[in-house]
Computed example of a mutant assay.
Amino acid sequence: MDYKAYKSYLSNIKINVRDRNSVHSKQVMSSTFSQSPSYFQVNINGESNQEVWITDDGDVREQKNIVTLNCPLKLGDLVIWKDKTWLCNHVDDMDIYHRGVILICYSTLKWLDDQGEIQETPFSFKSDTSSSFGIQEGRILMMPNERRQITVQKNNQTEKIKKNRRFIIDGRAWKTVGINRLIDGLINLTLEEQDLIPADNLDLSIADFMGNIADYQLRVLNVKDIVAIEENQTLQLNVELTNNSKVIEVYEQITYSVADETIISVSPTGLVSPLKKGTSKITISFRNISQTIQINVTSSTTNNYTAQIIGDDFIKYNMTKSFTCSFKDNGIDRQEKARFWLTETDSVTPTTLATLIEQDGQVCKIKANNKKGRVILHVENSTRLAYTTKAIEIKSLL
């Protein structure tokens, strides 16, 4: 065996021995883990029944040591232990176990985000004096010159906190004058006391509340509270979402639910498709607001459009006459805008015997020229489903 191969062999032996020792030690610890008086089942970041050891750290009541075997710890982890929230502000990853330090969170920080929605996160105190004297339960330690340093978990919402953001803590107003985001998982905020203003809500402990809280409104623009569609039709709901009267585009967060899914179905984009005759309701929701509409699915009908042109069969030279049309669907009048045009008797070639000088709604005016002949007046409705013609003679004055 050459030197390199022998060196690799020795290295593998050392690794295998260390791995075996690590596994053995972990097995020993695990077997005695639940027998320890420091053993607890806690909630970490929403995951319940996490097995940990928690021990006191000297006389500092607000600080504890925590050890886990199978659950890696991270800075900023929120631990729920004995109905209180603790923030992990120090971690050490060992070969066999994970250990860290957690600080108690006596309260939560509340604020309104850019959309006017309430955000909330637990916070712990971070100061030089707290490590010497501790934080007495039920009393919050104030730093000199009316400043406080607090620590919060780094997440999508706390990352958006900027300088001059105001908060309410202990019934007093505080402004952010310093932010440290350099620590993974944690954000340290330096707060300075401010005067309260009328917009502050002391009951909710939210600064700058009045006039900034979200006010979402949901409206369906193209239908009423009750709408009927036929079995062979679909209906696209046109939904508008506003916040403080300003239209916002978060349509992917709007949800649709159907009371009776055997009658209708609705897509995530609000397209309603009938399945059979009947009545069902659709509830359109966004956050904590909703609107309900009723959909009546009726039998499909066959359209039978007809058109008629009313007027004389002739026009004399250089004279003008009016013609009116009517449209019907299954014998029922349809007030639709008409389109008129003139051709020769082949129904294709434009005519020079008369001129269409005006058309409005379902009425047109035609002026004859001074040449004898016959023209064809055409008319159709806006959907082109109703169409007819009328032959008109152009006669001399004699």
Rank of each mutant, 00 (worst) to 15 (best):
E252Y: 00
E252D: 07
E252C: 01
Q253P: 04
I254V: 10
I254Y: 03
I254H: 02
Y256H: 05
S257A: 12
S257F: 04
S257R: 10
V258F: 00
A259S: 04
D260L: 11
D260M: 12
E261V: 06
T262W: 03
T262H: 06
T262C: 05
I263S: 06
I263R: 05
I263E: 06
I264A: 11
I264K: 04
I264Y: 03
I264G: 06
S265Q: 15
S265M: 09
S265K: 13
S265A: 13
V266W: 07
S267E: 05
S267H: 07
P268V: 10
T269C: 07
G270Q: 02
L271R: 01
L271D: 01
V272Q: 01
V272L: 02
V272D: 01
S273M: 12
S273C: 11
S273V: 12
L275S: 02
L275V: 01
L275K: 07
L275E: 03
K276E: 08
K276H: 05
K277H: 08
K277F: 09
T279N: 11
S280L: 08
S280K: 07
K281H: 06
K281W: 02
I282G: 08
I282Q: 10
T283N: 14
T283A: 15
T283Y: 08
T283S: 12
I284Y: 00
I284V: 01
I284H: 00
I284E: 00
S285F: 12
S285I: 13
F286M: 04
F286P: 04
Q291D: 13
T292M: 12
I293W: 09
I293V: 14
Q294S: 14
Q294A: 07
Q294Y: 02
I295A: 00
I295H: 00
I295E: 01
I295Q: 00
N296L: 08
N296Q: 11
N296G: 04
V297A: 09
V297L: 13
T298F: 08
T298Y: 09
T298G: 07
S300D: 11
T301S: 11
T301D: 09
T301A: 11
T301C: 07
T302R: 14
T302L: 13
T302A: 14
N303T: 15
N303P: 15
N303I: 15
N303D: 13
N303E: 14
N304W: 04
Y305Q: 04
Y305L: 07
T306K: 15
A307K: 00
A307H: 01
A307M: 03
A307R: 01
I309T: 06
I310W: 02
I310R: 04
I310A: 05
G311R: 04
D312V: 15
D312G: 15
